[in-house]
Computed example of a mutant assay.
Amino acid sequence: MGYFVDVEPGVNLFVEDINPGGSKTIVFIHGWPLSHKQFEYQFNVLPAMGYRCIGIDWRGFGHSDKPIGGYNFDRLADDIRAVVAALQLNNFTLAGHSTGGAIAIRYMARYNGYGVSKLVLIDAAAPTGFTTETANKLLAETLNDRPKMLQGVTDTFFFQYITVPFSDWFFQMGLQAASWSTAAIIILLRDENLMADLPKIVVPTLIIHGIHDRVIPFTQAQELKQKIRNSVLVPFQYSGHGPFWEERDKFNQLLTQFIDYEAMIV
């Protein structure tokens, strides 16, 4: 089921809640500039296995409201906390991709991981995001020819071949976002650093990263592994920035194993 959650006056986030009666809950935070729909190939499978899957569109993206402000890590983490409170979630796995991974890290640091039993970081844009050069190029394109920018992102996102219809679907997902929120997140990823947040993460953490990632280098996943206690890094050998699609069977199996077993995966 889909519904809206009020996170502050005048701002509502769209939440997709699949299999609310599931025995274990996974909260998915999408990447920039997409929406919860990027996890379609998890939502197809995991609820049928008994998991409750919750996809959240951040402010400015997908079906959520698109205010002119609030695009900083604190506010985005506050939005997640508001959804957790509204849905009365506890003992859930928090899974964030790319910028969603960065938001998840700030949530863990800002709220002492409230309600989270396990953390999954998927090609996370952390501890840093874009280089100044990359960010400035993306920003200029966003403000002058956003469709061109989105096509470029789509073209560099995957390591494996994608069909033209799939590329079109991915492209249209990015166009759902507001131009101002798209630009604001580029600036955020250019200017912010999450290094100080990492020691505050204490729950078991699974780090997944495609070794061919051209958006967020694999070396950043190795840095996360060094800085986050009780973490394990699993390289995805045939993925770029989208292992949730490129190696979806392996991704789904690894995710469920991590959630179901008490011992860390090695």
Rank of each mutant, 00 (worst) to 15 (best):
I29C: 09
H212M: 11
V266A: 12
F14K: 11
R214F: 13
V83I: 07
G2M: 09
I18N: 01
K227L: 15
G21K: 10
Y3F: 12
S35W: 10
F157G: 07
D123L: 00
G70F: 02
R75D: 06
D145Q: 13
Q222P: 05
T219Y: 14
F171K: 03
A86K: 08
G69C: 09
L139T: 08
Y107M: 01
P20N: 13
N230A: 15
E16F: 03
Q160P: 01
D213M: 13
P47Q: 12
G96R: 00
W245G: 00
G115F: 00
G60P: 01
F170M: 13
P243A: 07
F251I: 07
Y111V: 04
L233Q: 11
D123A: 04
F130A: 00
A140R: 14
L143N: 12
L233G: 04
N91H: 15
A196P: 05
F4Q: 01
A82Q: 00
T256Q: 09
I80P: 01
G210Y: 06
Y3V: 04
L89E: 09
N72V: 05
V84M: 11
A95L: 03
Y238N: 15
W245Q: 02
F130S: 00
G22T: 12
I80N: 10
I56S: 03
I56C: 01
A183W: 02
H241W: 12
S181K: 03
I80H: 06
S179Y: 10
N44H: 15
H209L: 05
S23A: 14
R106A: 10
V120T: 05
N193E: 13
S167R: 01
Q88W: 08
G152R: 10
A263I: 14
R190W: 13
I162C: 01
I105C: 10
V266C: 12
G31Y: 00
T256I: 10
D260S: 13
S117K: 03
Y3G: 07
P165Q: 01
L194Y: 03
P165G: 00
A82L: 00
A125E: 06
E141L: 15
L121K: 05
F61W: 08
V84A: 12
F73K: 08
F43T: 15
N90R: 12
Q38Y: 09
Q38N: 12
G31Q: 02
S117C: 09
A183E: 03
E223F: 12
H209N: 10
P204K: 08
K24Y: 14
F170W: 11
F4H: 02
R75M: 08
E223I: 06
I207V: 11
F130W: 05
V15D: 06
S231D: 04
W245R: 05
A102P: 04
P47H: 03
T93Q: 06
A77F: 02
A104I: 10
L87D: 08
Y107D: 04
T205H: 13
V234M: 14
N90M: 08
G50W: 10
G60Q: 01
I216F: 11
A125F: 07
Y41K: 14
L138Q: 11
L206I: 13
Q38L: 09
K250M: 04
I68H: 15
V45G: 09
K37Y: 15
V234W: 08
L189N: 12
R81H: 15
Y3R: 07
T256E: 09
D155T: 08
D79K: 00
R229A: 13
G50Q: 11
G62Y: 04
R190L: 13
W180G: 10
G113W: 02
Q222Y: 14
R229L: 14
G174C: 08
F170Y: 07
L121M: 05
S231P: 07
Q176I: 09
